[in-house]
Structures are given as structure tokens and as C-alpha cells.
């Protein structure tokens, strides 16, 4: 074998284990659940191999499913807004701080490493009936008996913001950090106030990072089912909870397939819109 042929084959040999794994464990299973979503569950709990639109019809028209889908998108959207409002100034601060920026960033990224379930349940210690907030308010005489602040949509959003904020901070940081500081100085020297310089120069240039962080927050928030189970009430289910219910509790796998594909399609549409306007390069920068 010639050297060039070797050189040409080499990358494929290196790539083949990973590509094989992804094909076998992701792409083929995805194709398979598309097929599965047209099958039906029989009365005895088995699966009837057929071609039926019933699951899809139900997934798309059932008012309960639609209500949950809208609630999911609302929760994800509000979460994203909060992440942006909290994360942008913090990331800007880190990127422009005069001290040890790496340390500041590392510190804010630290919760990222702390177990998701621990961070989620930690809010029970704060907001629960015998949590920090209630105990403080009781001892200060602000309230006479503890208030239940947990188990509603607001606490679900709170938990999600707490979980996803590092993704936003990291993305905004990467993009603010990449902006040449002399641009702001140039704007200032041309007579702009510092706030104007920020608004006219830095903010627009950092929007791709904000958008990338926003996309990550939105998609990750919309796909969660653990946070509503821990911090939400019985009425605060999100779409992924429906999938979990269908697959694990009801063992209705065809319906679960249709529901999970619907979630994939909706979130895929969001990503496609993002990709159309902004491209994926900023996103991979933020991930690495």
C-alpha cells in the first residue's frame, strides 16, 4: 500500500469506532422509533406491527398534550430570559474584570460540576416549609406560620435557571472575551460615553454568544423531566414527563416514541431557526 493511500485510510480507521457507535446506538435507534411510532399497543400490552397514524393524531390533537407542550415552551423561554438577565452582566464582569479572570470564571463554573440532582434538591432546603427562608421569616416574626413556596411553575423555573446559568455565562464570556477592547476605547475617543460604547459596540458584538447560550438553555430546559418531578407540583409536568410516563409507567412504547419524536421535532425546529440565522460555529466554540 502506498504512503498516500495509507495516509488517506488512516483517519477513517481512527474514526470508525466512534462513527460505528453513534450509528448503532443513536441513528439506527432514532430511525427505529420513527417506525415504532406508527405501531400500536395492543390491549394486552404487546405491540401490533401495523401502519397507524393514531399515536401521531393523539400526540398532535390531544388538548392535554398541547397544554403541556405550551407550558414546556413557556417554562423554557422564561428560564432562558432569566439566564440571560442574570448571566450576561456576570459574564461581562468576568470578561472585563481586572483581577484573576480564570479564577472568577472557574468559580462560576464550579456549580456546573456539582451534581444536577443535588443542586435541584438544594432549593427544598431554602424554600421548603422548614427551609432557611421560612425559618428566618418565622424568627423575625414576618409570618406566623410557614408558607409553602415550593412545588409550582416558578420553582421549576428557579431550579432550571440555577442549573443552566453556567451554560449562559460560559457562552457570553467566550464572546465578550473575544472582542478587541480597543474598539470600545475607539468609540470612547470618538465621543461616545462608556455606556454608549458598550451599547453600540460590545453588546452587538457579543450577541452571538448570548444567542448560543440562549439556545443551549432553551433546548436543555425544554427536555428536562427531573426538575418538575422534584420542584414542581402534580400539575407542573413538562413534555419530557409525558414521554417518561408513556415509556416507563404505562409501557405504551409506540405512544412514547411518537411523543419523544414530537419533542425532537419541536426542539429541532428551534435549532434550525437558530442555525439559519446564526450558524453553528458559535455554539461549538461555547461547548469546547
Amino acid at each position: 500500500m502506498s504512503v498516500e493511500a495509507r495516509e488517506r485510510r488512516q483517519p477513517w480507521i481512527l474514526l470508525s469506532p466512534a462513527l460505528t457507535a453513534i450509528t448503532l446506538l443513536l441513528f439506527i435507534p432514532l430511525v427505529f422509533i420513527v417506525v415504532y411510532s406508527f405501531w400500536l399497543r395492543t390491549a394486552v400490552g404487546g405491540v401490533e406491527v401495523t401502519f397507524s397514524m393514531l399515536n401521531w393524531q393523539r400526540a398532535l390533537t390531544d388538548p392535554f398534550y398541547r397544554y403541556i407542550l405550551i407550558a414546556t415552551l413557556r417554562i423554557a423561554f422564561v428560564t432562558t430570559i432569566f439566564c440571560a438577565v442574570l448571566g450576561y452582566p456576570a459574564a461581562y464582569f468576568i470578561a472585563r474584570a481586572s483581577g484573576n479572570r480564570t479564577l472568577l470564571l472557574l468559580l462560576l463554573m464550579l456549580p456546573f460540576w456539582i451534581s444536577y440532582i443535588i443542586r435541584t434538591m438544594s432549593w427544598i432546603n431554602i424554600l421548603g416549609v422548614s427551609g432557611a427562608l421560612n425559618t428566618t421569616m418565622l424568627s423575625l416574626g414576618i409570618v406566623n406560620e410557614p408558607i409553602q413556596m415550593l412545588y409550582n411553575e416558578a420553582t421549576v423555573i428557579l431550579g432550571l435557571v440555577h442549573f443552566l446559568l453556567p451554560f449562559m455565562v460560559l457562552n457570553v464570556y467566550v464572546s465578550v472575551e473575544g472582542i478587541d477592547r480597543s474598539l470600545e476605547d475607539a468609540a470612547s475617543s470618538l465621543g461616545a460615553t462608556r455606556f454608549q460604547a458598550f451599547r453600540e459596540v460590545t453588546l452587538p458584538l457579543s450577541l452571538p454568544g448570548l444567542a448560543a447560550g440562549g439556545l443551549l438553555c432553551f433546548v436543555l430546559a425544554a427536555g428536562t423531566y427531573i426538575t418538575p418531578l422534584i420542584l414542581g407540583g402534580p400539575r407542573d409536568a413538562m413534555f419530557a414527563n409525558l414521554v417518561f410516563e408513556a415509556i416507563i409507567t404505562q409501557l405504551n412504547w409506540p405512544m412514547g416514541s411518537a411523543l419523544s419524536l414530537l419533542l425532537l421535532l419541536v426542539l429541532g425546529a428551534v435549532v434550525a431557526v437558530y442555525n439559519h440565522f446564526l450558524g453553528m460555529s458559535q455554539l461549538s466554540r461555547g461547548l469546547a
Binding site: 443513536l26 432514532l30 422509533i33 415504532y36 427536555g223 423531566y225 414521554v243 417518561f244 419524536l261 425532537l264
Partner: peptide, 27 residues
């Protein structure tokens, strides 16, 4: 294209990945 394929498992919501893999391997 390969770069996208390699990061595809995190572009797809984990719930969907979980369902697909579970049902496929059960099959």
C-alpha cells in the same frame, strides 16, 4: 458533516436519545 455527527448525541435531547436506545435494544 463528520463534526456534526460526532456531537449529534448532545444535539438530540437526552430524553429522546434515552427512549430510542431503550426501545431499540429491547427489540
Amino acid at each position: 458533516l463528520i463534526a456534526v455527527i460526532l456531537i449529534a448525541p448532545i444535539l438530540i435531547p437526552e430524553v429522546v436519545l434515552a427512549v430510542a436506545l431503550l426501545l431499540f435494544l429491547q427489540l
